[in-house]
Every structure is written in structure tokens, then in C-alpha cells.
Design a binder for these strands. Structure first.
Lengths: 216, 216
DNA sequence: TAGATTGTTAATCGATTAACAATC
DNA sequence: TAGATTGTTAATCGATTAACAATC
């Protein structure tokens, strides 16, 4: 169904989860159809951009009618792979790793968490959402047996390198990376989505500090 | 010192924390000077872009020499306001709020966490990093007394609205927002930096699912 | 059919890259 | 001074917006 699977710009891709979220809300509210104009006023994009974006993947609308909410929701869900259930391990069960493991609905984004790992003996054996925290020493064997596809990296930069290296050797090529270690640069061929919380916070600070500059 | 405080595009602003981080590493490694060319090869930006970006804020370099690492680090730190110490409250001390409160070095990004709040009586009174979790019922009074400038929103979308509303009434206009509630849209004049972890995860899924499209 | 709204092409806008004169 | 590298202007590239013919 996709028109051209390749060549879709990151700007467009990054907007897709937002569409998905908004359509989910509309669906929940029982809305059946929506026009690009209506959607634009709710989301703050232009109607033109919405049509342009959606047409990267196919003609989901109908002239004179608009878009069917349920259908579009499902189409975008498929594009985003929300049912793919990629087998995933979480490396580093400090505060952040625990929070993510306990809190995030990975399955709703197409990931299936199959193992939690840490190196700290004092927390190995603890359970999070019924899953035991395993020793990172057993990660190599675990990979050879269970073949995870993706990994969430919640360890400090120093530890990240060796953990990632071992995962890559085991064919794990996809990373949700909360560390400052630059996986994509060090391991060509891997895919990583970086979440740099410090950078985000500093961007906020910039905006606060410079907020009145447009009054001039 | 800044050339034009206004009119600096978000694309540029979002890169500043990354420069800051890299310069911090260089500094730690004892590097004294660096050229835009050298920096470009390490960071993966073009040298041209680096010079262009830095010149939005002022001429920090010197022809024939390059940039002084320490000086540039400090300049960017000042631009990002890392020493501003904005008084900040964290709303919602579930897994994520706890992780952030315990884990993030807020002070290194110019924020000073002065209060932690939750509505769940069973965790009120617990301490995180020596700070007690307070009842969200006391937040109003707390604001009137302590005048926080920013808030970290770690509650579900439903609760976010009323918490934010009350904060805005107390003059808190800046938000680090982990909820799906669209603060900027609902409260004009506020600044919010949104962290949508689900969206990030779905973007990763898209990339995994479509990764072989460029082989064609 | 007439009205509405898409899909798509063309125009604009902004961001990135290239080039080079200024200068340390 | 000669070499290096910036600051800055000009050229290119890509992303967004506008316009409108196609069509439900």
C-alpha cells in the first residue's frame, strides 16, 4: 500500500506518532470522519501539511468526505509498526530503567520486553512488573537463546560502549538510547533513537532565559 | 554579548546543548583549542554549520586559531543558562517522576528542584534524595510561599490539566512536560518543552520496520 | 448535480552548505 | 610575512504552504 517506502523525510516520520495519538483520541471520542482542515485546527499543523504528509504513504482520504478516523488510525498504526512486537531487552535498571520498564506501555508501540538486566548484584533478582532483573553477565547467553531485536540503553556512557558492543555482536541492531554514548557513530548499520533528557532540559532553559526577546 | 537575542531558530537552539556536551568532553580531555573543521568531524555536523550556529550568538572564535575550548564552553553554558538555578517543582512522583528526581542532575542544567508533589497518600512522606514527597493539595500554598518558576509534569494527561492550571494561576509559566496534555495550546504564554517517550519509541519502530528500504 | 475536500503540482520560505574575503 | 581559520555573504537544497484541478 505504501507509495514509496523509501525517501520519506525524518520531518514527516517524526510527525506520524503525533497523528496516531490524535486519531486515537478522536476514535475514543467516537468521531467517525475528519477533514484535514478540522484536524489542522486541532493539531496546529496546516491542512496542507497534513495532506502532504499522509500522501507520502498513500491516498487514505476521499474527496468531498475527508478521512475515516478508524481506517486512518489503523493505517498509521501499521506504518508505525505498533503490532510488530519486537523482542526487546532493557539494559540498566537504575531509576530510569525501572521507570521505563514499569511505566511505559512498550507493547502499544510494537515492542515486547523479554528481559531486564543490570550489573549491580544488590538489585539482581528484584522483579519489575513480574519480570526478574537478571545479571548483565548472562546477557550474552540470553541473546544467543532468545534473539532480541532491540535494546533500551539506560546505563551511563562508560558502560554503554561494552554493552552495546556485545549486543551488536549478537545481532541486536536497534537501540532506544538514553545514554550519551553515540551508538550510531560507533556502530555503523545500527539504528538508534536517542533521548537526551539533559539536552531537552537545557533547551527549556534557553527558552525561559530568552523568552522576552520577541517583545523588542 | 549576544548579537541578536531574538530570531534564533529552534533548529539552532536545539543544537546548542549538543555543542555544550561535546565541549565539556573536550575540556575534560584537556583539549585547549579546536577548529570548526575538527569539531565537525567529531560531531557529524558540517564545519560551515558550526560556524554559522555559533555566530548567531557572537564571534567566539579567532581567525587562524579556531575556538578556545574553555571559553566557548563557558559562553554556551551562559547562553543555555546552566547557572540560572530556576526554582522548580516536580508534579507526579510515580516511577518516572521518582526517576527524574533521583537521577537527573537538574542543577547542571540550571534548575533547582525545591519541591516534589503527588496525590497518592501512600507515597506522601517518602523521601527522594532527602526531599519529602508532599501532598499536591499543599501545592497552591507552596507556590504562594516559594514562587517556583518551572514545573516538571509527570502525571497522566487527565490530572495534568488541573495541576497546570493551578500552577499557571500562581505564575508558573515554564514546563518540562512528560504528559500528553498540550500545555502550550491550552495556556498561551507558557513555554513547554515536551518529552513524548511513546512518540520516540514509535519513531524507532518506524525506522526498524522500514530500514531496508534504501537497499532498493 | 453542486458542494466539499482530497491529491498533487507549483510557489515560498527557511535551513544548510559552499565559497571567499577578512584577519589573526 | 605566510598559513590557517574564522565570520559572513551567496548558492543550494529541502521542507512547508498555497493553489487548484480531479473527483467523490
Amino acid at each position: 500500500m505504501p507509495k514509496k517506502d523509501n525517501e520519506i523525510s525524518m520531518s514527516v516520520v517524526k510527525r506520524m506518532p503525533r497523528y496516531y495519538r490524535f486519531l486515537g483520541n478522536l476514535k475514543k471520542d467516537g468521531v467517525e470522519r475528519i477533514s484535514s482542515r478540522e484536524l489542522s485546527s486541532r493539531m496546529g499543523f496546516t491542512a496542507s501539511q497534513i495532506r502532504q504528509d499522509l500522501n507520502c504513504f498513500g491516498g487514505f482520504g476521499q474527496q468531498g468526505y475527508g478521512y475515516n478516523v478508524n481506517q486512518l488510525y489503523d493505517e498509521i498504526g501499521a506504518i508505525l509498526g505498533v503490532d510488530n512486537g519486537y523482542k526487546t531487552v532493557v539494559i540498566g535498571m537504575g531509576n530510569l530503567g525501572k521507570a521505563l520498564a514499569a511505566h511505559m506501555k512498550f507493547s502499544k508501540s510494537g515492542f515486547d520486553v523479554i528481559g531486564l538486566f543490570d550489573k549491580d548484584p544488590s538489585i539482581i533478582g528484584e522483579t519489575v512488573k513480574g519480570m526478574p532483573i537478571l545479571s548483565v553477565d548472562t546477557l550474552d547467553d540470553f541473546c544467543k537463546e532468545n534473539h532480541p531485536v532491540a535494546a533500551v540503553i539506560c546505563v551511563p556512557e562508560a558502560a554503554a560502549r561494552q554493552n552495546v558492543e556485545m549486543l551488536v555482536e549478537n545481532g541486536v541492531m536497534n537501540f532506544w538510547n538514553f545514554s550519551h554514548f553515540d551508538i550510531a557513530a560507533e556502530f555503523p548499520g545500527t539504528i538508534s533513537e536517542n533521548v537526551h533528557l539533559n539536552d531537552s532540559l537545557r533547551t527549556l532553559n534557553y527558552q525561559i532565559t530568552h523568552k522576552h526577546s520577541d517583545d523588542e
